[in-house]
């Protein structure tokens, strides 16, 4: 019910507050609520009920004349006229696009996770390699790696094929009426908490991923450097790093793809949201700065992995992360736009 209230609220947000408009809003709210309650009573799920109510709601431009809000509605429609040959998108289509994108976000997220997981097998195999019992461990680890990468590639290709039906929509420009834009904005708003949770857990997992290697690295050093057991522990901890990072990245990728789907619709259609796809943290940077920052963290990650694998000093290499975090702020300060100061 909250979603419907927000939907109506957003729809009326830019309209003048006159007695006629208020009455219309109240009446429409009552009708929507009655319909929603009855659908729920018939055993529909929350989402089904909301979907039906919104798809049968109609269009505010129908009321424009009666309410004396012609100007407000026309202002929006004339914005639309500037891109007359755009693909027309209605609520059902936007809904289908968002649902497809959510599914493909899961697939791509799992694919990326498998890619990251794929190294775990070989790391573990390396840990037990010298023991005769595990003589087949390394080939098995390598085989597992290729199987996981294979599955991941399969998922990527499948997603790409599935997504290709939306090629035209994603290329834009799109034509959407007032209520569709409001509907998408509203869906985006209700997705926002989920997005925050995905991103937060994802980032936390990536950060804590270094904890086991650090702890075991230090413990291993103290115990007896060179002891086979301590070394195996460190390597096992290194493997756990990839498990954490894998799950974390999966959540981040999934969250980002779903958010991007909303922004794409809104950017291409409503023109109400200006370049939301840009990372707001870097919004104040010059173009060079944005380019540098976009490759910064991947480079740091590569450096970390390269250093760690070449030296196997997992207990020291983590120091890259705090240094990199500080240095990223320095870079951002260097590349800041003059006007933002």
């Amino acid at each position: 019910m909250e979603t419907l209230r927000n939907y109506l609220e957003n729809m009326f947000m830019n309209l003048p507050v006159t007695p006629e408009v208020l009455r219309a809003k109240q009446e429409l709210a009552q009708m929507m609520e009655d319909k929603y309650n009855e659908l729920k009573a018939e055993g529909r799920t929350e989402n089904e009920a909301i979907g039906i109510v919104i798809s049968e709601f109609g269009n505010l431009s129908e009321l424009a004349e009666d309410l004396g809000i012609n100007d407000a509605v026309r202002a929006h429609d004339s914005e639309m006229d500037m891109q007359p040959e755009g693909l027309h998108v209605n609520v059902q289509m936007a809904e289908a696009y968002l649902a497809d994108k959510a599914k493909s976000a899961v697939r791509i997220g799992i694919g990326v996770m498998l890619c990251i997981f794929s190294v775990v097998g070989t790391i573990l195999a390396a840990a037990v390699e010298d023991r005769p019992v595990f003589s087949t461990a390394l080939p098995a680890g390598v085989a597992a790696m290729f199987i996981m990468i294979g599955c991941a590639v399969g998922l990527f290709v499948y997603s790409a094929t599935k997504d290709s039906v939306w090629k035209e929509l994603e290329r834009g420009p799109l034509q959407m009426d007032f209520s569709t834009v409001e509907y998408i904005k509203n869906r985006k708003q209700s997705y926002h908490p989920t997005h925050t949770i995905f991103m937060t857990i994802g980032i936390v997992l990536c950060v804590v991923s270094v904890v086991p290697v650090t702890v075991f690295g230090i413990l291993g050093d103290r115990a007896s450097s060179g002891s086979q057991n301590a070394e195996s522990m460190t390597i096992a901890a290194a493997a756990s790093l990839f498990i954490f990072v894998g799950i974390g990245v999966m959540l981040i990728v999934q969250g980002s793809i779903r958010k991007e789907a909303f922004d794409r619709l809104l950017n291409a259609g409503g023109k109400t949201v200006a370049s939301m796809s840009e990372d707001p943290e870097y919004a104040d940077l010059t173009d060079t700065g944005k380019r540098v920052m976009s490759v910064y963290w991947p480079c740091v990650t590569c450096a970390y992995l390269a250093w760690s694998f070449l030296t196997f000093n997992w207990h020291i290499t983590w120091i890259i992360w705090p240094i990199a975090a500080v240095f990223s702020k320095v870079l951002q300060a260097i590349f800041i736009k003059k006007e933002a100061l």
């Binding site: 429409l28 009708m31 049968e56 109609g58 009321l63």
Partner: peptide
Amino acid sequence: YGYEISKRIRSISGEKYIIKETTLYS
């Protein structure tokens, strides 16, 4: 009232005509 009317339109028309809320209010 609003919803009752829209519900009856739907059932009398045998689900063939579903009037939009905005149409009805207009």
